[in-house]
């Protein structure tokens, strides 16, 4: 019995690895057929470049810079989104007044405000922060409003009947009640923010002649435009993917840890 499970597990792993492996082999074969002068990336070369970039290419530094921006922008968005979300969720007048404005900004992609961000804040960190906060704001807000408006009215009324002050109602009833939605919104927001920072750094790099914004997106642009190095670009792409995966896993773990009553 145990053996059957083991073999089926081995089979599953084998199947899982088949397609990526075939893809890698095809890529390697295709790249080897290219003339030596072509900058086509090679899988083996990519691995070597990865080690090189980590040891002396400043990949870690660029990553830390990008992550720092994402986390800062995310917390700005979280603070704004949760406060406005709670106001909108608990008061119908506020919701009806703000909803048209929010809904008309939502379909405007974060990258569309990049030109304005450059005009206002230049090409540095504050520009990137503005875009990240804008991108992360909407998922947090929408989910907070949803979470607050879904709270059991009876709990709020019961607390008020017992003469609990309004601030305590907020911290003890409304915030815990809305927490699952806020966390879900945070996970989505962080994903969007990570995409937005790459786009922002890339575009700032592209539109300001590579001038100093830094970060992993900028790094990719430099590898594309100046030192043409496609291996390094692939390394950056893999790192971007890994970080996105890691962010997602951390938030899912936090959801399980902070909301034990839901599982």
């Amino acid at each position: 019995m145990n053996k059957i499970i083991q073999t089926s597990r081995g089979l599953a792993i084998l199947r899982a690895c088949t397609l990526p492996f075939i893809l890698l082999v095809v890529w390697q074969l295709w790249a080897m057929r290219q003339p030596a002068s072509s900058p086509a990336p090679l899988p083996l070369q990519v691995v070597l470049t990865a080690f090189e970039l980590v040891s002396k290419g400043g990949l870690v530094q660029a990553l830390v810079q990008s992550l720092g921006r994402v986390v800062t922008g995310f917390f700005i968005a979280l603070a704004l989104g949760v406060v406005i979300g709670i106001l909108m969720g608990s008061s119908r007048a506020v919701r009806e007044s703000l909803d048209p404005i929010i809904e008309s900004f939502r379909p405007i992609a974060p990258m569309a405000i990049l030109p304005i961000a450059i005009l206002w804040f230049g090409t540095g960190t504050s520009s990137a922060l503005a875009i990240v906060s804008y991108a992360a704001f909407f998922p947090v807000l929408v989910n907070t409003v949803h979470g607050v408006s879904r709270i059991d009215r009876k709990l709020v009324l019961a607390a008020q009947t017992m003469g609990v002050p309004r601030l305590t109602v907020l911290t003890r009833v409304i915030l815990p009640g809305a927490l699952p939605s806020v966390l879900l919104g945070s996970r989505l927001a962080m994903g969007v923010a990570w995409t937005a920072i790459i786009a922002a750094e890339l575009a700032v790099g592209a539109k300001s002649g590579g001038g100093g914004s830094g970060g992993i997106g900028q790094m990719m642009f430099v590898f594309y435009a100046y030192s043409i190095n496609l291996n390094a670009i692939v390394v950056c792409m893999v790192v971007v993917g890994l970080v996105a995966l890691l962010i997602d896993r951390i938030f899912r773990a936090a959801e399980i840890r902070l909301l034990p009553w839901r599982n």
Partner: peptide, 10 residues
């Protein structure tokens, strides 16, 4: 997990 934006340079 690799966002579409990250594909841009390539």
């Amino acid at each position: 997990p690799i966002s579409g934006i990250a594909w841009l340079p390539l």
